[in-house]
Design a protein around this nucleic acid. Structure first.
Lengths: 217, 217
DNA sequence: GACGAAATGTAATCGATGATTACATAGCGA
DNA sequence: TCGCTATGTAATCATCGATTACATTTCGTC
């Protein structure tokens, strides 16, 4: 036991012998641990995150005032990844057809939600932290919504849609995609096929149905 | 303090002096307390339910093996009320037009979900208890789903729908309504109008949009 | 009616959790 | 080099779900 006497108490950056008193980047590690816990289906506790970071139960509170703040930070990280994937999909979307872009958006949205259900839940639910407690999350989400609304407005301006109020279309589009994602999350889909491809095919069919329902012709 | 000496230890049914040792209908009272707590936005704890029933913290476990069982029972009660309201609405629905019945169903569904968000959450989320832990809840829900699917199948059989696969229509219909309800629940609607009438009007518009999207003509 | 078993409530206790406080150590700048 | 601040530890608290031992009531059976 007494082998713990510091052989190198010098101001070294992180010698490899035993973990240093200061962790290095505990905040980040805690966020990752929280996301990982959620992914595993376990409920996220501050203590368990601390445990995984090999740190005392009180340490996390140096970085987050309370549990909700940790969850909010984890949600921000998840949202960052979510948005990155959306933007990649849009960048690869064929051309300038607003409805085609809308379709690509919806597909990327649902694909991510199907494959990262726990992270999607953290982002969307507003149960782990007060909704609006993270201004960044709220702003980020508002931007994505504005993006889709712009697509639909463009489609209307180009005469691609059947005559109808735009607002209900926008709301319905959001509700449809959000509802599909949450149904998957909340266990409202029977264990459909063997793979996740089947449910993703259904997601595609639902999006196409919606578009054909609002498109002219 | 020593005024607690039982003046009437006889086997009376419930004399009015002081609460009797046995509660009477603790199970029911606990379920109601749980629903009330959810309605108030507080998180539901067994102890708090016991507190409201003026009973010791261990008492509830005589009626429910664990917290989840209490929540499942509460969910069953909420589902019972939900379904009752749906059936009233359907009974009042004008005629035999399948799409009209579908519309009435959707409106009643969303109306209840908007006005009883906490109860809707308990029913739908599968987070308070293992999804499928309550066979009755599952069966009840399956019946409602079968009902709507039958409406859409009838509509298709009567040639009221544009040609399309029925399955995506059924899934999309569920996702749309469920998504709208959950968006409201999860705080994705800005505090729209003063009253709840505005959001209910939007719900109606969304349902009508969906129907017009799948209906022939 | 009387009695004993079953049902139902209480009291005490356990382990886990979020949170706070006092203290220890590291790292950084004047 | 000194000392301030950031960051981690240790100890502690209240709350919660859950279990156990014990108390009281209720009810069927004789």
């Amino acid at each position: 036991m007494p082998a713990r006497q510091p052989s190198k108490p010098r101001a070294r950056r992180h010698t490899s012998d035993a973990r240093p008193y200061h962790h290095g980047d505990l905040r980040r590690v805690l966020i990752d641990a929280a996301l990982q816990l959620a992914e595993e289906g376990a409920e996220v506790s501050v203590r368990e995150a601390a445990r995984r970071a090999a740190v005392s139960p009180g340490a996390p509170f140096r970085h987050f005032p309370n549990r909700d703040a940790l969850m909010a930070a984890a949600a921000q990280e998840a949202q960052r990844r979510f948005r990155a994937e959306i933007e990649v999909a849009l960048a690869q979307a064929p051309g300038t057809d607003p409805l085609g872009r809308f379709r690509a958006f919806g597909l990327a949205y649902l694909r991510w939600a199907m494959r990262n259900p726990a992270h999607f839940e953290i982002i969307s639910t507003g149960r782990y932290f007060a909704h609006g407690s993270s201004a960044e999350l709220t702003r980020d989400n508002a931007e994505l919504i504005a993006l889709t609304e712009q697509m639909l407005a463009d489609a209307a301006a180009q005469g691609l849609l059947r005559p109808a109020d735009l607002k209900p279309i926008q709301i319905a589009g959001r509700a449809l995609v959000y509802g599909f994602a949450r149904m998957n999350l909340d266990g409202h889909f029977p264990r459909w096929g063997v793979a996740e491809t089947e449910i993703e095919r259904m997601a595609e069919a639902v999006i196409d149905l919606f578009i054909s329902g609002i498109a002219k012709g």
